[in-house]
Design a binder for these strands. Structure first.
Lengths: 342, 342
DNA sequence: TTGTACGCGTTATCAG
DNA sequence: CTGATAACGCGTACAA
């Protein structure tokens, strides 16, 4: 791969002139500029960004660290960020951590060595995160996505998970449901889940009902019906179920239907995230719709501001409750016993 | 951010020795090595990969170009590649193109300037691709994922789309279906869709039935029921439908159910891709299961081989037909008229 | 408008 | 085992 000096020589100018022809074309006489371009073409010259990065101390690369790409929430957010970044001349370097703090650290160190211009990351737990401890000592622009309640200097872009789940619970309450449960994947892994659970508990308490303990599934996005059965097959069982994410909700609905339960007649199910697919299913999924795309764009916009030296506020994005066929009014009669022998 | 020279000075050694302490620790006496590490720690030194990349002419970055991340097929493949790349000390730089050839070119040029060590890409159409034309003149290791039938020098990792759809069609035929249709998103955008259609046509012809024209949806992953209705509401209408991907299939099933159709009683539906979600739905999705993770890993492994100067063969991965509740035996009586007035 | 010269932080090649 | 020095390819202040 030829370099700028060869181009300059072929064009009969100095290297500086050749460089300027690319970086500041207006500062070069048109005739010489053309000569440079011609030489560049015949030699197949291509600017070397690595050299430029070293010289300018700026890579125009943004590091993105996410828990996983299997969840559409993150992959759609990533997609939005990638498009916007490219529009602003930035490239994305990505890594997934699967919620493992040690992988977070390895990835972070790698990105710092790569001298990324900024970072957008979603950590497992913003309260106790070695990564954030480390970053608070660096002077690198950082935006946390999906992590509310981060230590003070960090800019966050997120949603009010607690209020969202509060609202979803109120929706069920307003339909006459009283025995409402909540289900989630492995709890310890994500600080967002506990916020959602808190929102549920608060809504139940405010309405004068007893919050149920969190029903924990072994997997984030795949339901295990056996764990759930005791909660729905017994007398005085649940009439509605809140799920920590849409994939889990969809999985549960499928499992219930296959076991002969009717959704929403026997059990109303509410998801969380608002993935597009949920709207197409039958019954369509009632869920909290968080603006994944907008969140990605907001995170990237905030980061660009930080990189430009501006200050950027923490942002809390709006959510909406998407109504769906997976929720129905509570059945007064059957709510006391779902399995009656005639 | 301090550099190696400062570390060396603080440790009382030359820069070369400090560098060796990191790169070839065994070639440095333990006592001096410790001094270097100590100095490195107190100064908060972090190796600058950009400088290393310039010097070694190797970035250990792999460029990944995909059509979209909204389709789990690609995001799961990406996830697998990212994990494997990291294990081998490579980072991933990503970009999405949404099947636009011009965006492909922009992205490619950017990655070449970034001096990635290799590329994994899925182009819209491998037969006529400006990107591949360009790359055939470069000496960069390249692996095409999901693109069969690429021009000669390129290494591909893909699946036999035609044979897969042939087999899916045969499955329906073996269940007594005769009027089988196929539906897809905008055709021109992906060469894989036409291969799948060819597989369908071939199976129909081999069985002595007339292949139907491809039913085209305005969107890749969202069904428009109105376009489909004429095919299923009329006399002598379809009894089974093959879809170009799972998201489209799921969307169609939902729409059909909402319109009062029974799947699979009135219409059997088959997907293509094998996304995990399909198994959980009710009815579960009958589909062609392509090994997304294995494909990602194979593509990355092949690329690493190329980077090491080895030759790597084109690979065609195996698929499996995943049976599901969205398909049923053809109803002999109702197959002549789905809307009888009693 | 154009050219000269230096430095970005590292690794490779020698010589000691 | 250690040190001095030259690249790697480019941007840019300064001089002409």
């Amino acid at each position: 791969m030829t370099d700028l000096l060869s181009v300059a020589r072929l064009a009969g100018v100095s290297r500086a002139t050749a460089a300027r022809a690319f970086a500041e074309p207006e500062k070069v006489r048109e005739s010489t500029r053309e000569k440079v371009y011609a030489a560049s073409n015949t030699l197949g010259f291509r600017p070397n960004y690595v050299a430029r990065q070293l010289r300018t101390q700026s890579t125009r690369i943004i590091g993105v660290m996410l828990p996983t790409l299997s969840n559409p929430v993150f992959s759609e957010q990533l997609q939005a960020m990638e498009i916007l970044a490219r529009q602003h001349g930035y490239s994305l370097m990505i890594a997934t951590t699967d919620y493992h703090p040690d992988r977070e650290s390895v990835v972070l160190e790698n990105m710092l060595r790569q001298r990324v211009d900024g970072l957008i990351l979603t950590v497992a737990d913003a309260q106790h995160s070695p990564c954030l401890d480390l970053l608070s000592r660096e002077a690198l622009p950082v935006v946390l996505a999906h992590n509310p309640d981060a230590p003070s200097p960090f800019v966050t872009v997120s949603m009010d998970n607690q209020r969202a789940m509060y609202q979803a619970t109120c929706h069920l309450l307003s339909l006459g449901h009283q025995r409402i449960g909540m289900i989630a994947g492995p709890i310890q892994q994500s600080d967002r889940v506990s916020l959602r659970y808190q929102g549920y508990c608060q809504a139940m308490n405010d309405a004068g009902y007893l919050p149920q303990p969190l029903i924990e599934m072994p997997h984030h996005t795949r339901a295990n019906i056996d764990v759930l059965l005791p909660w729905i097959a017994a007398p005085a069982s649940l009439t509605a179920l809140l799920c920590s994410n849409d994939l889990l909700a969809i999985s549960i609905i499928g499992n219930l239907q296959r076991s002969g339960f009717n959704v929403p007649q026997q059990l109303s199910v509410v998801g969380f995230d608002g993935i597009q697919l949920g709207e197409m299913l039958c019954p369509s999924l009632c869920t909290i719709e968080q603006p994944q795309q907008a969140l990605g764009e907001a995170a990237l916009t905030s980061l660009l501001a930080l990189i430009s030296g501006e200050v950027s506020p923490c942002r809390t994005l709006d959510f909406t409750l998407r109504h769906g066929e997976s929720v129905a009014r509570a059945q007064i009669l059957s709510s006391f016993n779902t399995r009656e022998i005639p």
